[in-house]
Design a protein around this nucleic acid. Structure first.
Lengths: 195, 195
DNA sequence: CTTGGTTTTGAACATCCGTTCAGTTAGCCA
DNA sequence: TGGCTAACTGAACGGATGTTCAAAACCAAG
């Protein structure tokens, strides 16, 4: 028997990406086999190759999609640096808390990309950092922020914000909007904005 | 030919651990084979099993050693919360910058531990967090620190500090002591200590 | 120089890996 | 209703995986 009843390209493709994302996040790219992904979708391993040229592309596609979604969803620059920073912080928290698997993969599986693919993802990641750095630099110039080192502060703020995904679970002690409040308070103080 | 001239148990054991640490950090636990580790040491794969019962134990030993070193090296509590926090920050930066491979493994390979081993490592990690949380809580009680949420601030500070290992390279723009100064300034403001 | 014990080799084990492809089936269009 | 093609199966490919173990080689002590 071949081709299970009712299944189509439009269905199977997304299901493969979803299964890969979940498995890569939980077990790691190298520890997940194509047969495992196929089983999760309810298909034989060979069928995966109608949707991806190889395993590496599956990983790369997930990462590139995530990073492009992230950059596209960035709030438009508007207002003074303080307001823009607050918008950035709230956005970052909401976006990352919403897709823990994709975030996990984007940070943990960089070393499993081929050098060419790594270069591209790294470039997208740098664009995101640059976005925050521009806000901080502008705020520093107009005297709204006080920091010893803008570059280090940029990386420190991103690390602080992204760290939220390692412990936050929906339905816990804090709701997402409370989380945003707490982190905005932390970042505000970190960049030297007084109340 | 068996047994290369001049080699001994006291030599091979540490070299296996060193090779495993370097390879696990660069490529990830699942992507590294026992034959690869053996080749790095200059030995056949079978010889590794004189020093470790299996691959999993090799990973677990590296992680447990790292975490116990970390806890043992923690500065003794002395003085007021502000002084203790500063000591903690400077210690954390110095310790982590010194052993990037071990730090990388400790954060990235948790999911490749068996459940029992994970439980133990997780416990050690929590002890480290509790150490910082105690400092912050004490400082909050005596009014030296001002934070919206002590628990979240603890995790945020650790994430911020540990993030340094993702970009810092010895011999770059900043020396370690400058790095400590910058991060102490960041943390100080984050917990609400005015200058 | 021989003996004894430690350390390592090299081959073998069963099983898994990513990937390919000829053949089979399911659903759509005429 | 019959034919066409997209979708999928199932088997096969060469090679890699963690682990075991008898045999070999080495070093040190007597």
């Amino acid at each position: 028997m071949a081709r299970t009843a009712g299944s189509h390209s439009d269905i199977t493709g997304p299901r493969i990406r979803a299964a890969a994302q979940q498995l890569f996040a939980r077990q790691g790219y190298a520890a997940v086999s194509m047969r495992q992904i196929a089983a999760e979708v309810g298909v034989q391993a060979g069928a995966l190759y109608n949707y991806t040229p190889d395993k590496q592309s599956l990983l790369y596609d997930l990462m590139v999609t995530h990073m492009e979604d992230l950059l596209r969803a960035l709030p438009e620059p508007a207002g003074r640096p303080v307001a823009r920073l607050e918008a950035f912080v709230r956005f970052h928290i909401a976006f990352h808390v919403e897709r823990p698997d994709a975030v996990f993969i984007a940070y943990m599986e960089l070393r499993n990309l081929t050098p060419e693919n790594f270069e591209i993802i790294e470039g997208l990641r740098r664009r995101y950092e640059d976005h925050l750095e521009a806000i901080l630099r502008e705020g520093a110039e107009e005297g709204a922020f006080k920091m010893a080192d803008t570059k280090v502060t940029t990386l420190a703020v991103i690390a602080m914000l992204t760290g939220v995904t390692t412990w936050f679970r929906e339905g816990g002690r804090l709701a997402v909007n409370e989380l945003q409040d707490v982190y905005w308070d932390l970042v505000r103080k970190t960049v030297g904005v007084s109340v």
